[in-house]
Design a protein around this nucleic acid. Structure first.
Lengths: 158, 158
DNA sequence: GCCGCAGTTCAAGTGAGGTTGAGTTTTTGG
DNA sequence: CCAAAAACTCAACCTCACTTGAACTGCGGC
């Protein structure tokens, strides 16, 4: 398959190919480029061409989204990584530690909530005075304007 | 404080009082009413008046949001509860079981992710071929139109 | 009797993370 | 060589959970 001696570095991928292989819609890829998450070069006819490594970048974005990072944060992380080669172990270690603590935080928050819920199943109270579930909701007020992005999972359905 | 023999059932609260006590902005309370999550009666001069139990309802909404339910789902849950009295133990048991499994689902998803991440910290690979983190992201594609609400937690900052 | 804050409605804006559609151009396969 | 498929741009739209602003009205106090 390789006529030339250049291994496969000069093999650029179209947006359709990237979309297909990554499972991310072409519109989303353009959006990501807009947001500075990925890059492309253009053909003479203005069509996007991606390096293979872009697939890795996109996978990275998806993984980070699952961890709970916003695109802006993901961009920051990506900006600190080289885009032409595999990140160093140090890069990765730094990032994964941040992710790890994020996950830990979120997990333990949900576990606390679950335990409170279990307590409530027992008592069946729904009492404002006694119920942990209710009282824990206190510190949720006071945030700035704009949308609150919240922890609605992406389980099976819309 | 009770001149009459009716205990305190006829003590209605203004939107300001409810806002202050629940920590939910008045605008949000109107929004919730619009969405059918809470109810109010009006004074002769068209001002909202809330029953005490509305505080309980609002706390319920907040707890449900923490579990990860959308307002529409919370409305459904509330619609299945009596609004004038404390819910029965059976009501509560039913709801809390749904919540519980939601939480369990989400928690185990995050735990899986964390474990994959741990594996990756060890290997430092970021390789598309071998990395679980990446490969697990596969089935995230294919959803309908509209916004994907995602699992960005509400930690310390916006 | 009037000041002023708290309340009212309704429309529009916000922000994240995209999708959809119209109209045009480029690339590809027969 | 030409039609069809795929890409392009740009603006508009979508959801969710609210907030903000404009333009009024209600209610308690002095």
């Amino acid at each position: 398959m390789s006529e030339e001696n250049v291994p496969s570095k000069d093999h650029w991928l179209s947006i359709g190919e990237i979309a297909h292989r990554s499972g991310v819609a072409a519109s989303a890829l353009r959006f990501y480029e807009d947001q500075g998450l990925i890059r492309s070069r253009r053909t003479a006819g203005n069509q996007r061409q991606y390096q293979r490594s872009t697939l890795r970048r996109i996978a990275f974005v998806q993984a980070a989204q699952r961890v709970g990072l916003a695109l802006a944060e993901i961009k920051q992380a990506l900006d600190s990584l080289p885009d032409d080669r595999t990140p160093t172990r140090a890069d990765w270690s730094r990032l994964s530690k941040t992710w790890r603590s994020r996950l830990d935080e979120r997990i333990s928050e949900l576990e606390r909530l679950r335990d409170d819920l279990d307590g409530c199943i027992g008592c069946g109270c729904l009492s404002l005075q006694r119920c942990n579930l209710y009282n824990k909701a206190d510190r949720l007020a006071e945030r700035g304007p704009g949308a609150r992005i919240l922890n609605v999972g992406i389980p099976g359905e819309a």
